[in-house]
Design a protein around this nucleic acid. Structure first.
Lengths: 353, 353
DNA sequence: GTGAAAGCGCTAACAT
DNA sequence: ATGTTAGCGCTTTCAC
């Protein structure tokens, strides 16, 4: 037996209210010419029939679905969960919804694009994943704006919003320098990702500027994950002959946390007494008692705001922004994994929420 | 200047391929009568025009959107992130997508329902949130199946899939008993949520059966969150005159982890030497070096499978399953926060992945 | 301010 | 196997 999908339509409502179907449509469209009295009549009838406008049908004519696609590659990193949550909340406030596309971390999301095209989404946000330039123009040609969150694709005309990762990496380098570190280790993330590359570049660049020799900086791959960073840290300390670093930069917080765990529980080193460590992102987990991680905070709210602005959801007549790059400065949050140098003691105290 | 939404339609493709529009439709519908030759012609033309079928338009006639709504109330708990991820992956494999509705944890999600109704979703999954019975029938009346994930609503005819929380709670109680605990503490979650209630019930019930007196069990509210459990633990040990518990059950893993952190870093107690602790969920974070949490594993994959089955996405003619309750047994994972009694030593060794 | 009618892009009978 | 045609539920001119 087929399911009785007794969904009433605008015609049903019109009949009950004794008006035309277009009146019903108008009653549900804010800012359309309709007498208050008529609207009330319609709304009452609608309530009786449990009528809810079919937005699938309306988007056929309006060409707006009020759906935004979010392609996300790494839900294991709490940072991106937070990003997802922020987007969802903001969009819901505007009467829009997030259609989620999960892809393998750092894999091509071309297939996802092909799918979201079918859904006629109003815009797409791409985060923690790769994308070919072909797909970008495929979207743009159809009038679908796409903005990259925290990554950019060299040679493409896609716009993007990101944390200023180079400057952020430099912030950690400065903190290490100020705390008197001499030998540095670096756990990098996804090698293909611009996010990790930039943080590394900013970090190393600032160190070099500060007179640190290249040989005093070791790099290991952490693959942006907790497990990856665990292995990376082990590798770092396997070679006993090498000089032991006294400062370690985890290119994101989960890797920095993994490093701390490995240091304490496997290597037997104390943080920050034996080794200081810095992170990047400022995920809530890094604030927890065992970590109290000194890190660079990414201003998620602001980044999401800028992203939404670039999407021009409210005005589809706006031309799609192309080639725009909005780097947003992060802020160093002093906590306990880097000793605070005396000169910094009384500045920038963190207001704990 | 308006955005050129140069989306080509099935008519454009038909014209280029020299066939009728319905031939194009058939070419994109698997299992429809069409000559291979024709299909090839169509597909070639479609490729040239970058044509992608508009599934919004097709769902107008098919009455299927291939969209499943997921209402989620707590993205702060990694367990639910994992649930979301699993649903998304599974659904994508079937050519469907997740439309996400985030609501305040434990708040009514009635408003979310009103919104998802507009999108004509094929089904809805509700997790970590409340729902009125009125909304359930609103969905059911329209032929939209809704299944509750890990919760149930007394007196409603909504179906649900959940971990057998009562049995799971009992598992932790047994482990404590076997390890020789005498005084018990309990950090509860959301008081309104059936999940927490059931775990508490199973835990306390088993303890009582084991001859433990009610006075030996203390309960504090942890509000299902890390921060809440931190406070709860502090409260637990504030009163110095009270007998100190030697076993603590955090009704979910994040709360158990918070308790461990508080115990070690604030109270100055060792786990498990001074106090054993058990959790529930088996989130990956609980496996990490500092915790190695003994806990009850929720079989997410299986739970998601069952949920998807109840949704009958592939066969909308199936009647909506009503009042079905599918409790799925969890499994105790022995790790380091509860001393393994000798009798258990050689049984159920955990295969670490 | 309101109704009639056309049409958004597709699927599904129905013919052929 | 293929084309023709009538909708799906709505928005949007266009008259009145």
């Amino acid at each position: 037996m087929a399911r009785k999908s007794s969904r009433s339509t605008s015609f049903d409502v019109a009949a009950l209210a004794g008006v035309s179907q277009s009146a019903v449509s108008r009653a549900f469209t804010t800012g359309s010419r309709i007498a208050d009295e008529t609207r009330t009549k319609v709304l009452e009838a609608a309530l009786k029939l449990n009528y809810v406008p079919n937005s699938i049908a309306s988007s056929l004519t309006t060409k707006r679905t009020n759906i935004v696609a979010l392609i996300i590659g790494n839900l294991d990193n709490p940072f991106y969960v937070h990003v997802l949550h922020t987007f969802s909340r903001r969009l819901q406030e505007q009467g829009r919804q997030v259609l989620i596309f999960t892809v393998e971390p750092n894999s091509e999301s071309d297939e996802a694009i092909m799918h979201l095209l079918k859904y006629q989404v109003d815009g797409v946000v791409l985060t923690a994943a790769q994308l070919s330039t072909r797909m970008i123009s495929l979207c743009h040609d159809r009038g679908i704006p796409i903005v990259l969150f925290n990554r950019y694709i060299p040679g493409s005309d896609a716009s993007g919003v990101r944390c200023d990762n180079v400057a952020g990496g430099a912030l950690i380098a400065e903190a290490f320098l100020a705390a008197g570190a001499k030998n540095f280790a670096l756990i990098t993330g996804d090698l293909k990702g611009t996010t990790s590359q930039d943080r590394v570049r900013g970090f190393v660049g600032r160190l070099l500027e500060g007179g640190v020799k290249r040989t005093r900086i070791v790099e290991v791959e952490g693959h942006s994950s907790y497990e990856g960073a665990l292995n990376a840290t082990a590798k770092l300390f396997r070679d006993q002959n090498r000089v032991r670093p006294d400062a370690l930069f985890g290119v994101n917080d989960i890797m920095a946390m993994a490093a701390i765990d490995a240091l304490r529980h496997r290597i037997g080193l104390r943080v920050p007494e034996d080794l200081m460590v810095g992170g990047f992102d400022d995920i809530p987990e890094g604030r927890r008692l065992p970590y109290q991680l000194t890190t660079v905070r990414q201003p998620i709210e602001q980044m999401v705001d800028e992203t939404l602005q670039l999407l021009h959801l409210d005005d589809p007549t706006e031309p799609i922004p192309r080639g725009i790059d909005r780097p947003i400065k992060g802020r160093l949050i002093w906590r306990n994994t880097i000793p605070v140098p005396l000169s910094h003691r009384w500045t920038e105290p963190e207001i704990q929420s």
